[in-house]
Write a protein that binds this DNA or RNA. Structure first.
Length: 638
RNA sequence: GGCGAAGUAGCUCAGUCGGUUAGAGCAGCGGAAUCAUAAUCCGCGUGUCCGGGGUUCGAAUCCCUGCUUCGCUACCA
């Protein structure tokens, strides 16, 4: 039965080159799109680029070009790379396109008229470099530069009004958020109070955006700008027929944008009166050589690294590895060793060699024509049954997006074809029983052909070559079957599909990553956990003695104390989580040790400048103080 | 700190409802075969199923507890 299938990737932000994260999401979506096309479903596959925002504006200024030019350039890089990899998107949408911006304004106006968007004065911490308000927690993690507290009027979307409905929807629609661990995260998130969503930026701070239709002083900010692409691309509010044809979609995303897609986006849709997405599937992240990817570590898998692998073994082998080992549920590791070993064992040995041995035997003993099958024996019937069962299995696994299992099942079948050949040893049989052996080779080839067909969405190029060598242009499709192999058809010579790789390549140094300068989005991302630090690192922290002048409990907390301390000439305030261990009065006059040059943080609205050092172990805590009393404070500790 | 997930062979992982000798692939060792890309096929694992308790006739599987890792979250700093 033919159905419709609409699948999307995230829109990629045009401040970076494509890397393995983008590539993985897009290849996964491509594989699913191809599976559905193979099944005969009407399929629409959307990808694109997210192009507004301050970073783009700044990057363009820096380069001395217009934002439009910058976006054209980067959107082109994504599009070209997807073309280079042979990805079969049906549409590539850019958030700067008119067809998109019109719809964004249309939706914003609707929600404003409906009262779901309101103006409100907002005070909070704003990161200029990230161009967004950040939470206290994010600030405290210290990953943001140029943070200041600002207060301004902005427009808000009444997200909280839809919290209950969303939670109920999620709980009664298990296929909505997958895999299950992600759904649980969102359910947990929604059990806490939900804030409304700030969706605007004043133009004087950000001009490169879509103007609010009801207030020309503002542009809309990322959520309404970017997320709506999924519906604007298929005619939302404009072409109901097309919209109803495709929507709702399956969204393939990375786990980093889970909340936006599972909370912000569905509430936006609820407010707009549109059905929610069919599924949001959030995959994990790729690690590289056992560690988090990092540009400074040199293990970053960017497009040049991908090109290197692809030039060695082809895009199909790359897709195969991504499908087999990819981080669908947790995170996965991409190691060169694993990549090339998997290539050799699965593709060169098991599959490539199988193709070769069957073709050579038929070429040599049957004049290169597919032998006529005689009566099928027990082994052949089993092989046929397993092949047809594989079709069903894959169909089921598609519903849960279990690509890794799909690949495993197909490979298992391919192995069983090799086993079958050993059992029947046609290279012996041809000497005595050409007819009976013909049946064996027919069965082997029929099984191989079916396996290749089922594998074709994962490896379209190589399986395409095989089908061409079979002179079989019709066999790929919904009616694929084991018996579809026609006898007496001449086979063409076939090049080795997967030439074995010499694993010496693993001893070579990987080519140095990324000659082009790419902007690192977030400096903290590239910092790795170090278990050992240099003495220079240590001296980065300025430790000083301080005397406690005053202490009091912070209102409505049970762990926090607000301390006034004297550090030499300076009087500072710090907040410390020691209230369960010290009473304010017993602290006064004590000399303690603080980290003096720590970035100030706000805790419960109190600015804390520094951190005091404590000893902590099971349920116990004590302050680090000095052995002997000191007359003054502010002394250096070394 | 709270909530959740995970910890199974050297490596990557399956083991959804508790039930015969705990599995697969890779790597390793031995053998067969020689159609084929030094490929293929067969055989080989005394694994404290993270530790400790408990429930049960019986637990990797359920309960409690401890440790470790990860995710989300918080009045951690």
């Amino acid at each position: 039965m033919s159905k419709r299938f609409y699948i999307t990737t995230p829109l990629y932000y045009v401040n970076d080159q494509p890397h393995i994260g983008h590539t993985y999401s897009t290849i996964v979506a491509d594989i699913f799109a191809r599976y559905h096309r193979l099944k005969g479903d009407e399929t629409h596959f959307l990808t694109g680029t997210d192009e507004h925002g301050q970073k783009v504006q700044q990057a363009a200024e820096k380069a001395g070009i217009s934002p439009e030019k910058h976006c054209d350039d980067y959107a082109g890089r994504f599009r070209n790379f997807w073309n280079e990899l042979g990805l079969t998107y049906d549409d590539f949408i850019r958030t700067t396109e008119k067809r998109h911006m019109e719809i964004v304004q249309n939706v914003l106006q609707d929600l404003f008229d409906k009262g779901d968007i309101y103006k409100h004065k907002y005070e909070g911490l704003y990161s200029i470099s990230e161009e967004r308000f950040i939470t206290k927690k994010e600030f405290e993690e210290g990953n943001f530069r140029e943070v200041k507290e600002i207060s301004e009027e902005n427009y808000f979307f009444k997200m909280s009004a839809y919290q209950k409905d969303l939670l109920a929807y999620i709980e009664s629609n298990p296929e909505f958020i997958q895999p299950e661990n992600r759904r649980n995260e969102i359910v947990g998130f929604l059990q806490q109070p939900l804030n409304d969503l700030c969706i605007s930026r004043p133009k004087n701070r950000l001009s490169w955006g879509i103007e609010l239709p009801f207030d020309p002083e503002y542009v809309t900010y990322v959520w309404f700008d970017a997320l709506l692409n999924y519906v604007s691309a298929v005619g939302f509010k404009k072409d109901p027929e097309t919209f109803n044809k495709w929507w709702p979609a399956v969204h393939i995303i990375g786990k980093d944008i889970l909340t936006t897609h599972c909370v912000y986006w569905p509430t936006m849709l609820m407010a707009s009166g549109a059905p929610l997405p069919k599924t949001v599937f959030a995959h994990g992240w790729w690690m590289s050589e056992g560690q988090k990817m990092s540009k400074s570590l040199g293990n970053f898998i960017d497009l040049n690294t991908i090109r290197e692998h692809v030039s060695n073994v082809g895009t199909d082998a790359f897709r195969y590895f991504l499908a087999k080992e990819g981080p669908l549920f947790g995170d996965s590791d991409f190691s060169r060793e694993r990549f090339y070993k998997t290539y050799n064992t699965d593709l060169a040995n098991d599959l490539g060699n199988l193709v070769n041995r069957i073709f050579k035997l038929i070429e040599k003993h049957y004049d290169g024509k597919v032998p006529e099958p005689g009566d099928l024996g027990e082994s052949e019937i089993v092989l046929r049954k397993e092949g047809n069962a594989l079709l069903q299995t894959v169909d089921v696994l598609l519903k849960t997006f279990e690509l890794n299992k799909i690949v495993f099942e197909i490979l298992t079948y391919i192995r069983s074809i090799n086993r079958y050949l050993e059992l029947k040893a046609p290279w012996k049989g041809v000497k005595t029983d050409l007819t009976g052996t013909g049946t064996v080779l027919y069965a082997a080839l029929a099984s191989l052909r079916l396996a290749a067909g089922i594998l074709s969405p994962v490896m379209p190029e190589k399986t395409g070559s095989l089908y061409r060598a079979l002179n079989d242009e019709t066999g790929l499709g919904a009616e694929m079957s084991w018996d579809g192999l026609k006898s007496n058809v001449s086979l063409q010579k076939i090049e080795s599909l997967f030439p074995r790789m010499d694993l010496k390549i693993l001893d070579e140094k990987p080519s140095v990553v990324s000659s082009e300068e790419t902007e690192t989005k977030n400096i903290a991302e590239s910092e790795e956990k170090e278990t050992v630090i240099s003495v220079d690192d240590f001296f980065q922290s300025e430790l000083k003695t301080a005397r406690i002048l005053h202490a009091e409990n912070v209102q409505d907390t049970d762990k926090l104390l607000k301390l006034k301390i004297e550090v030499g000439e300076e009087i500072r305030t710090i907040v410390a989580g020691i209230a369960q261990f010290y009473k304010p009065e017993e602290l006064i006059g004590k000399t303690i040790i603080i980290v003096a040059n720590l970035k100030p943080v706000k805790i419960r609205g109190i600015e804390s400048k520094g951190m005091l050092l404590t000893e902590q172990s099971k349920g116990r805590l004590q302050l680090l103080t000095l052995d002997k009393d000191l007359p003054d404070s502010g002394a250096d500790i070394k």
